[in-house]
Amino acid sequence: MTPTTPPTRIRRATPDDVPALTRWTSDDPVARIDADRLTAELRTGNYRPEWSWLAEQQGRPVGRALWWGRSDGDRPVTLDCLSTSTGGPAAVEIGAALVRAGLDAFGAGAPLEFIVDAAPTWASDPAAVEAVRWRHEAAHLGGFTRTTERVSFARTATDAKPPRPTRLRFAPADDETFRALFAAVATGSLDAHTNDVVARDGIDALADDDLDFYRSLPGDRQAWRTAHLPDGTTVGFIIPTRTAYDASISYLGVVPEHRGHGYVHDLLAEMTHVHHDDGQARIVGTTDAANTPMRAAFERAGFTVTRVRIVHAQ
């Protein structure tokens, strides 16, 4: 006789489920939220029971989905951790149901993402390949529509700093100037998100969204700078802000007519100095795996690859 799989119940967590959420363990070789971090960030409101989902069979948890959001937010931003106690097709089925439940519950609003962080060498590890594969299938069956592989970098204040640029001048500017620059650098961009938004909604919508998004990040708006040649010609801009945890190379852009002259290195070097001069011990940054010029710039500026980030987006 072939055993039958018990029915799976997908439900939103409640405060009474916090012990079950924190006890959850996984052996998958991708990043996961452990009990200590979950406990700490339940206190800050970055994770919340009502932003968490459980899959159960016969009353026993067989899957967990944790969504992360800003502590002052009324809606999460990313699905940070998706795991199941099974593998293969069952993991895909349970994972897709957990994804779908969250997307349906959170409804319309800013596009949500599902992030899977893996080691830089994950593609050569069969177990990691499988962990990434089933989450990819679950993401798309559950409602995410596109996937981008990104590379995360970091450096510390003890790493050798790149030379500070001397051929550019940096100056503050108002929001309208930065909005125009967001639109200008979209042409010919190697960033998958930029190209997707432009194709779907147009450059004006992209510029509006980018301005709103980067203004919403932690950090000092007064640190944003436009970059100019000595004659005043604008070649690009930098936006040094923060993630929830670290100083960040949030955005830099070179306008199309000045690409090919290595200004990306000047912009990144300036951002590195801005953060370290402000006393920041660690700086992080991320770029698409396909964006080889930006990857080379990070390496030249003393950044080290810390992980590969697979981003599933709506």
Results as ranks from 00 to 15, higher is better:
Arg167Lys: 12
Gly202Cys: 14
Arg150Gly: 05
Thr147Val: 13
His140Arg: 05
Leu168Cys: 01
Arg167Gly: 09
Thr156Tyr: 01
Tyr214Asp: 02
Ala180Trp: 12
Gly143Phe: 08
Asp201Trp: 09
Arg155Pro: 14
Pro172Gly: 01
Ala154Gly: 11
Ala186Asn: 09
Thr166Asp: 03
Tyr214Glu: 14
Ala173His: 09
Arg146Glu: 15
Phe178Thr: 07
Phe170Gly: 02
Asp209Gln: 15
Gly188Met: 04
Leu181Gln: 07
Asp174Met: 04
Ala184Pro: 13
Asp210Thr: 14
Ala184Arg: 12
Pro172Lys: 02
Ala205Pro: 05
Val198Thr: 01
Arg164Asp: 00
Gly142Pro: 01
Arg179Asp: 00
Arg164Gly: 01
Gly202Tyr: 15
Ala160Asp: 10
Asn195Cys: 10
Phe182Ile: 08
Phe182Leu: 07
Glu149Arg: 13
Ala184Phe: 12
Leu141Ile: 03
Ala184Val: 06
Asp175Thr: 09
Thr187Tyr: 06
Arg215Thr: 09
Gly142Val: 08
Thr145Tyr: 11
Thr147Ala: 07
Asp196Pro: 02
Ala171Gln: 13
Arg150Met: 15
Ala180His: 03
Val197Lys: 05
Leu181Ile: 07
Ile203Asp: 12
Glu176Ala: 13
His140Gln: 05
Ala207Asp: 01
Ala160His: 08
Thr148Leu: 07
Glu176Leu: 08
Ser189His: 04
Ala184Gln: 08
Phe178Ser: 03
Asp208Tyr: 06
Leu211Lys: 00
Asp209Phe: 15
Ala207Pro: 00
Phe178Gln: 02
